[in-house]
C-alpha cells in the first residue's frame, strides 16, 4: 500500500491530477453551498417570473444583471439551476455507486470466497446483467414507473428511483473486480492463518480479505460515478430522468435543447460545459488513481 504522504506527493507532482482535483473540488463545493451562493432558488416558484424567460447572458444585449448566464424558458437563472443541478447529478452519481458498491462488493466477496456453485450462480447472474444494457433497463423501468404513477409521485421519487436503477444495473462491474481480487487473496497464507486462529468465515471475508481488495474498488468507484452521472444525464435528456422542476444537468440540457433553434443556446450550452468538466475531472482522477495504486507502476520515492 502507498502511504498517505507518498500519495500527497504524487498528487502534487502531477499537473493533470491537480487540475482535475481542483475542478472537482470546485464543482462539489459549488453544489454543496448552492443554497447560499446561488443568486436565486430555482425550486421556489415564488421567485420565478415568466417575464424573465429566455434572457441572454448578462453581457449580451437584453441581458440582466440578476442572471449572469441568462435564463431558461421558465425564467430561472441558468447559473442557479446549474448550481443546484450539479448537486442533483452528483447525488445520483454517488448514490448509485454506493448501491453498486454495496451490492457488488458483497456478492463478489461471497462468490470469490465461497467458490463452487455459489460462485458459478452469482457470476452467471452478473453475465446476464451485463448483457442487458443499463440504459435499456433504466428506460423500461422508468417508462413503466412514469406511466403507473402521476407526475407528482414520479417527481418525488425520481432521485431515489434513478439511484436504485443505475445502482442495480451496474453491480456486476464491482462484483467481478472484487471476485477476481478475492481469488488472488484467499489462497494467501494470512487467510490460512486467520482460519487457524479460529475466526468465522464472515469475519475472514470482511475484515481480512476485503481490505486487501479495496484498491481496485477505489479506482472503479471514481470511474463509475462519472458513468452513473452520464447515464442519468442521458435518461434525463430522453425525458425519463429528473423532472423539469428539479433539474439535473441532463434535464437542463434537454430543457434548453428545444430552444436552441430559436437562438437561446445558453440554456443548453452552459449545463453541457459543466457536465463535460465534471465527467472529465472524475475520469482523469480515476485514471490517475489507477496508476498511483498500481504497484507495477510504483516509483521509488513513494
Amino acid at each position: 500500500m502507498i502511504s498517505l504522504k507518498g500519495f500527497i506527493t504524487r498528487f502534487l507532482s502531477d499537473p493533470v491530477a491537480i487540475v482535475a482535483g481542483t475542478v472537482l473540488l470546485f464543482l462539489v463545493l459549488m453544489a454543496i453551498f448552492a443554497p447560499f451562493l446561488a443568486p436565486q432558488n430555482p425550486y421556489d416558484l415564488m421567485q420565478l417570473d415568466i417575464m424573465d424567460s429566455e434572457m441572454p447572458p448578462s453581457w449580451r444585449v437584453g441581458g440582466d444583471e440578476r442572471f449572469p448566464l441568462g435564463t431558461d424558458a421558465q425564467g430561472r437563472g441558468v447559473l442557479s439551476t446549474i448550481m443546484y443541478g450539479t448537486g442533483i447529478s452528483l447525488l445520483i452519481g454517488v448514490g448509485a455507486v454506493i448501491v453498486q458498491g454495496v451490492l457488488g462488493v458483497t456478492l463478489g466477496l461471497v462468490a470469490g470466497y465461497r467458490g463452487g456453485w455459489i460462485d458459478a450462480f452469482l457470476m452467471r447472474l452478473a453475465d446476464i446483467q451485463m448483457s442487458l444494457s443499463t440504459l435499456m433497463i433504466a428506460i423500461i423501468v422508468l417508462a413503466l414507473f412514469q406511466a403507473a404513477f402521476d407526475a407528482n409521485t414520479y417527481a418525488d421519487y425520481a432521485i431515489f428511483m434513478l439511484i436504485v436503477i443505475i445502482g442495480v444495473a451496474e453491480w456486476p462491474k464491482f462484483a467481478r473486480t472484487v471476485r477476481s481480487s478475492v481469488l488472488g487473496e484467499k489462497n494467501k497464507e494470512y487467510v490460512d492463518a486467520a482460519r487457524v486462529i479460529g475466526l468465522p468465515p464472515r469475519r475472514i471475508m470482511w475484515k481480512h480479505i476485503l481490505p486487501n481488495t479495496l484498491t481496485p474498488v477505489l479506482v472503479i468507484s471514481t470511474i463509475q460515478v462519472a458513468e452513473a452521472i452520464m447515464t442519468e444525464a442521458a435518461l434525463s435528456f430522453l425525458g425519463l430522468g429528473m423532472p423539469t422542476d428539479r433539474p439535473s444537468l441532463g434535464s437542463l440540457i434537454r430543457s434548453g435543447f428545444e430552444f436552441i433553434f430559436s437562438g437561446s443556446w445558453w440554456i443548453t450550452l452552459y449545463p453541457a460545459i459543466v457536465l463535460v468538466m465534471l465527467i472529465l475531472a472524475l475520469n482523469l482522477l480515476g485514471d490517475w488513481l489507477r496508476d498511483v495504486l498500481n504497484p507495477k507502476l510504483r516509483r521509488g520515492d513513494d
Binding site: 494467501k188 492463518a193 486467520a194 487457524v196 479460529g198 481490505p211 486487501n212
Partner: peptide
C-alpha cells in the same frame, strides 16, 4: 479449538500476518 487450545505457527512471517491490519 483452533487458535485457542491448538495454535499454529507458519513458515513465512512475511505473508502470515495480514498486511493491512
Amino acid at each position: 479449538i483452533r487458535g485457542n487450545r491448538i495454535s499454529m505457527i507458519f513458515q513465512d512471517p512475511m505473508v502470515t500476518l495480514n498486511p493491512v491490519l
